[in-house]
């Protein structure tokens, strides 16, 4: 790459200074849906209510000042042993290529109804990420086109990354020799 190209590349991806542009804009737009926000060790985090996840994500993706084009990661945490309520939390990590900033969005979900809207309409990668979370935690994604297990096999019972699934409960599918 020539030095000019490199300069261009850096011009495309400017460094964001210490401000938190994402949080301010979002608070204005969705005052009710934002449950909490903090910035621990430099990671901006917001907690949002499950039913307004889809509009918030759309807003984050499409507002030019924010433009989080990439869904870097999607996972969940089971807070059973930490005694938090509600029990589950789905965690989204967003990244903006244009502005080079990151945001973590969390959605708390109760134990009796672990369901949240699917983001497959916004990002293609959400398909597999959501299948994995369903497989590992048993969290349902409303509107997902094909919610099957991803890593485990169909015969497998239970969701292994839940804290109440014992670490070495095996479910072999071929007969074991002795």
């Amino acid at each position: 790459m020539s030095p000019e190209q490199q300069n261009n590349a850096q011009a495309q991806l400017p460094q964001v200074d210490g401000e938190r542009p994402a949080l301010g804009r979002l608070h204005q737009q969705f005052p009710e849906a934002i449950l909490a926000s903090h910035s621990y060790r430099g990671d901006d985090t917001i907690s949002v209510a499950g039913d307004s996840l889809l509009p918030i994500m759309q807003f984050l993706r499409e507002t030019p000042e924010l433009s989080f084009e990439t869904l870097m990661d999607l996972t969940a945490v089971d807070y059973l042993k930490m005694g938090k309520s509600p029990r589950f939390e789905v965690v989204y990590h967003l990244y903006s290529l244009t502005h080079n900033h990151r945001l973590r969005v969390k959605v708390p979900l109760p134990e009796d109804l672990p369901e949240v809207d699917s983001l497959t309409s916004l990002w293609k990668i959400a398909d597999w990420y959501e299948r994995e979370v369903w497989d590992m935690f048993g969290i349902k994604f409303r509107g997902h086109p094909d919610l099957r297990r991803l890593l485990m096999y169909e015969e497998f019972e239970g969701h292994p990354l839940r804290k109440d699934y014992p670490k070495s409960r095996r479910q072999p599918i071929v007969a074991q020799r002795t």
Partner: peptide, 18 residues
């Protein structure tokens, strides 16, 4: 008590630990 996400450039791309 807390949570962090740290990304590094793995050989294949962004390798993140949460």
């Amino acid at each position: 008590v807390g949570e962090v996400y740290q990304a590094v450039e793995g050989a294949n791309g962004e390798l993140g630990f949460y």
